[in-house]
Deep mutational scan, measured.
Amino acid sequence: MTFKLIINGKTLKGETTTEAVDAATAEKVFKQYANDNGLDGEWTYDDATKTFTITE
C-alpha cells in the first residue's frame, strides 16, 4: 500500500510517499524521516486517504 506524508513545517513544506504493509510501518518510516529532517510537530492520520500530516 502507498501512504503519503504531508509536511507543513516552519521551514520544510511538501509531501512524500512510502510503500508499507500497514499504517504502523508507514508511521515509523515517516517519523524517522521527520526526525532526520529536524521536524517536530503534531501528527494526524486519515485512514480513508492513507495520509499522515505533520504540522509544526
Rank of each mutant, 00 (worst) to 15 (best):
K13L: 15
L12D: 15
N35V: 12
I7R: 02
N37H: 08
N35A: 12
T25C: 05
N37I: 10
L12M: 10
Q32M: 14
I6V: 11
T44M: 13
K31M: 11
Y33N: 02
W43D: 00
F30A: 01
G38T: 09
I7H: 07
L5I: 02
K13V: 15
T2K: 15
A23Y: 10
I6A: 05
E56D: 10
L5G: 01
K50R: 12
D36Q: 10
I6L: 08
G38V: 06
E19N: 10
T11L: 14
G38I: 05
L5W: 02
G38Q: 08
N37R: 13
L5V: 03
E27C: 04
F30Q: 00
K10I: 13
K31N: 06
L5N: 01
N8F: 08
I7K: 02
T51A: 08
W43I: 09
A26L: 01
A26T: 01
T55M: 10
K4Y: 05
A20P: 01
F30V: 01
K10N: 15
G38P: 01
A20T: 09
T18K: 03
A34P: 01
T44D: 15
N37A: 14
A26F: 00
L5P: 00
E42K: 07
T17H: 11
N37S: 11
A23V: 10
K4P: 00
T25F: 11
T53Q: 07
L5R: 00
Y33L: 13
I54Q: 01
A26H: 00
E27G: 08
W43S: 01
G41P: 02
E19P: 08
K13N: 10
V21G: 15
N35G: 05
Y45R: 02
T55C: 04
F3M: 01
Y33W: 14
A48W: 11
V29T: 09
D46A: 06
A48D: 09
A34R: 02
F3R: 00
E42M: 11
T11R: 04
L12S: 08
E15T: 06
F30R: 00
N8Y: 06
W43L: 13
G41W: 11
E56M: 05
G38E: 13
T25I: 09
G14D: 13
Q32R: 07
T53Y: 05
D36E: 12
F52Q: 00
K10G: 13
V21T: 09
N37P: 01
E27V: 11
D22L: 05
I6P: 00
I7Q: 03
T44E: 07
F30S: 00
I54T: 02
E56H: 04
W43V: 03
K4R: 11
Y33Q: 04
T18M: 11
M1R: 08
T44Q: 13
V29D: 07
L5K: 00
T55W: 09
K28I: 10
E15K: 03
F3Q: 01
D22E: 07
L12W: 09
Y45N: 01
K4W: 06
G9N: 06
T18G: 03
W43H: 01
F52P: 00
V21I: 07
T18N: 04
T44W: 09
T17F: 12
F52A: 01
E56C: 04
T55A: 06
A26N: 00
D40V: 14
Y45S: 01
K50Y: 12
K50A: 15
F3W: 11
K28A: 14
A26P: 00
T16H: 12
D47T: 13
G14C: 04
L12K: 04
T55E: 08
T11S: 11
Y45W: 05
K10A: 13
Q32I: 10
T11P: 06
T53S: 07
K50E: 03
T53G: 03
Y33M: 06
K28F: 14
T44V: 11
L12I: 14
G41F: 06
W43E: 00
I6K: 14
A23G: 06
K10V: 15
I54L: 11
T16P: 03
G14V: 11
T2W: 12
Q32N: 14
F3Y: 11
A48T: 15
Y33V: 05
V29E: 10
E15M: 03
A23W: 15
G41T: 02
F3N: 00
E27W: 14
A24R: 14
A48G: 10
A26S: 02
A48N: 08
L5T: 01
E56L: 11
A20E: 06
I6S: 05
G38C: 06
Y33K: 03
A23H: 08
T16M: 14
L39S: 03
T44A: 13
N8W: 07
F52V: 01
T44N: 07
T51Y: 03
L39D: 02
E19K: 11
E19T: 15
E56A: 05
F30D: 00
D46K: 06
K4T: 13
G9H: 13
T53C: 04
M1V: 08
A34K: 02
L39E: 02
K4L: 12
V21M: 15
I7D: 01
I54Y: 04
T53V: 08
A24C: 05
Y33D: 02
Y45I: 02
D36K: 08
K28V: 06
Y45F: 04
M1N: 14
F30P: 00
F52W: 10
Y33R: 02
T51H: 03
D47C: 04
D36A: 06
F30I: 02
T11C: 05
M1G: 11
G9W: 10
T16C: 05
V29R: 06
L12T: 07
T17S: 09
K31E: 09
K10C: 04
K10M: 15
G14L: 09
E19R: 13
T55D: 08
Y33S: 02
G9Q: 12
F30M: 03
D40G: 10
D40S: 08
L12H: 08
T2Y: 08
T18Q: 06
D40Y: 09
D36M: 08
N35Q: 10
F52N: 00
E19I: 12
T2E: 10
A20I: 02
F3H: 03
E27D: 08
A48P: 06
A24K: 07
M1T: 14
A24D: 06
M1P: 13
M1S: 10
K31V: 09
T18I: 12
F3L: 01
D40H: 10
K50V: 04
K10D: 14
V29Y: 15
E56G: 04
N37C: 05
D47M: 13
T11H: 14
T53A: 05
K4V: 13
D47K: 11
T49G: 06
L5D: 01
K4G: 04
G38L: 15
T25A: 12
F30N: 00
A24M: 15
T49V: 11
I54V: 12
F3T: 00
A48V: 14
G14M: 09
F52Y: 06
I6C: 04
F3G: 00
K4A: 05
E15A: 04
E15C: 04
L39R: 02
A23S: 13
T17W: 14
A20F: 04
A26I: 01
N35P: 01
K31Y: 07
K13M: 13
T51F: 03
T55L: 06
V21N: 15
Q32L: 13
T16S: 10
K10E: 09
T2V: 12
L12F: 12
I7E: 02
Y45L: 02
K50M: 09
T18S: 05
A24P: 15
N37Q: 13
I54M: 08
K50T: 06
G38H: 15
E19S: 10
G9P: 03
T18C: 05
E56Q: 04
N8E: 11
D47W: 14
T2M: 06
L39A: 05
E42R: 13
G9L: 15
I54A: 02
D46L: 05
D47Q: 11
K13D: 08
T51V: 08
A23E: 10
I6T: 06
V29S: 11
W43C: 02
D40A: 09
N35F: 11
A24F: 06
G9T: 15
A24Y: 12
